[in-house]
Simulated scan of single mutants.
Amino acid sequence: MARFSPLEWPVIRQLRSSDASGRGESVVSQKTRDTTSRTATADKVVQSVCPYCAVGCGQKVFVKDDKVIQIEGDPDSPISRGRLCPKGAASEQLVNANGRITDVLYRAPRAKDWQKLDLPTAIDMVADRFIEARRKHWEDFDDKGHPLRRTMGIASLGGATIDNEENYLAKKLYTAAGAIQIENQARI
């Protein structure tokens, strides 16, 4: 470590410079000059949408070595104009939490323990059950012969963490599948 010189005291630097008020460069330490922000060291910046509510605030996700290091509001977003609520501003902690589960877990009926599944297997299980429920509970006509073309075996309860476009696509999917019980948590 370099020896400290009294010439580096802020008041001495202030008197030696043209910074008479002591609010400029004379009061900035070398440590402060050497400090850089986390965002300056990022490898890339990815645009995203906040996952917490249905507002859809824009986020800039700063990534270094394939790890999220900072999340800030996106000033180019017409919705949030660079601002985030406290939950949105803390979403980096959601991504990097030590307790975050990143595996697909499945508990068979009446089983005590969870088992890990690979993603393709889990998706196939969901798709097979969806198709089977639709087939098993399909209603073409009612008792009087009126066309129904619906299933009572599928229902959807969406969450408020997806934006309008995703809700629109979910509604289209379930309607095309014949489901009529389609609801969203944000309306309840």
Rank of each mutant, 00 (worst) to 15 (best):
K44R: 15
K44E: 14
K44L: 11
V45A: 04
V45Y: 00
V45I: 15
V46N: 06
V46E: 14
S48K: 08
S48L: 03
S48T: 12
P51R: 06
P51T: 09
Y52K: 14
C53V: 11
V55A: 11
G56P: 08
Q59Y: 02
V61H: 04
V61P: 07
V61R: 01
F62S: 05
V63A: 01
V63Y: 01
V63R: 00
V63E: 06
K64V: 03
K64F: 03
K64H: 09
K64S: 02
D65F: 03
D65Q: 12
D66Y: 02
D66A: 06
K67Y: 01
K67H: 02
V68D: 01
I69L: 02
I69S: 06
I69R: 00
I71T: 08
E72M: 09
E72S: 10
G73L: 11
D74E: 03
D74C: 02
P75W: 02
S77N: 14
S77R: 00
S77F: 03
P78Q: 07
P78Y: 06
P78R: 00
I79Q: 10
R81H: 14
R81M: 14
G82Y: 06
G82M: 05
G82L: 10
R83H: 15
R83L: 14
R83T: 14
L84K: 03
L84V: 07
C85E: 00
P86L: 10
K87Q: 08
G88P: 10
A89R: 15
A89Y: 01
S91H: 07
S91F: 08
S91V: 11
S91M: 13
E92W: 04
E92A: 13
E92L: 09
Q93A: 15
Q93P: 05
L94A: 13
N96Q: 08
A97G: 11
A97C: 02
N98W: 05
N98Y: 08
N98F: 11
G99L: 04
G99Y: 00
R100T: 04
I101S: 04
L105I: 00
L105P: 01
Y106Q: 04
Y106G: 02
R107G: 14
A108V: 09
A108T: 07
A108M: 05
R110L: 14
R110T: 15
A111Y: 07
A111I: 15
A111G: 08
K112A: 12
D113S: 14
D113Q: 13
W114Q: 05
Q115I: 12
Q115M: 11
K116V: 11
L117W: 03
D118S: 07
D118R: 04
L119I: 12
